[in-house]
Write a protein that binds this DNA or RNA. Sequence first.
DNA 1: TGCTTTAATGAGTATATGCGCATATATAGA
DNA 2: TCTATATATGCGCATATACTCATTAAAGCA
Lengths: 111, 111
Amino acid sequence: MSKRLPMPTDAALELIAARFRVLGEPSRLKLIRALESGEKPVNELMTATGLTQANTSRHLQTLTQAGILGRRREGLNVIYFIADSSIFELCAHVCGSMQRQAVNQAKIIGS
Amino acid sequence: MSKRLPMPTDAALELIAARFRVLGEPSRLKLIRALESGEKPVNELMTATGLTQANTSRHLQTLTQAGILGRRREGLNVIYFIADSSIFELCAHVCGSMQRQAVNQAKIIGS
DNA sequence: TGCTTTAATGAGTATATGCGCATATATAGA
DNA sequence: TCTATATATGCGCATATACTCATTAAAGCA
């Protein structure tokens, strides 16, 4: 079933790495987590994540530029939402991988 | 089929972010790519990636500590190999996501 | 036009980290 | 033990970036 992919070029690896870097910040993952239950304005995201206003805004910008979030203005508020929902599968994938590793380590160390 | 995952704690997000950060370096992705065809000693990885010896060694250390690679000594050589092959699915996932985004942008811009 | 509220951004600082150079460590063989 | 080869690591530098504070921009309302 799984297609065999061509070997990525160096340029492709740069792009992939850039995407991973965007996800490599806990604050940005918090924002994504906060948006899983539905779109929210910036001020709600601030309180949900505990980030300052400036910080929230910058991270939202990074995530939006990466195509992970989308935004829409509604009066004074700007509403952010998940634009690429495959991000959750990606996180789940990493979670699963890390859980397997942890279980293996536990086995090796023993109880 | 897909399980509903519990919302990750902040500590879990830190770990996930750390894993993403490890993958957020093109040089490390190059090493992973070089190892896709099979295990290799450090000197081969150096030539395959164009990295210096010190740099290669450090990145290999980072990847090994993250549980992505494994290592085994064989005489003077140290052989590195993929320890967590789910890494390829992960990269393919990101690739697919970015391709979809690129196609959408192309549609929006028009030919 | 002001005034208020919400969000974005410019500037400066602190920290993390990738890199190169040099050196240390590990293993094999003479 | 001495030497050669392969890999790891200490150190310093340069750069990227996350953060804070202050200011600006955008939108609604009196």
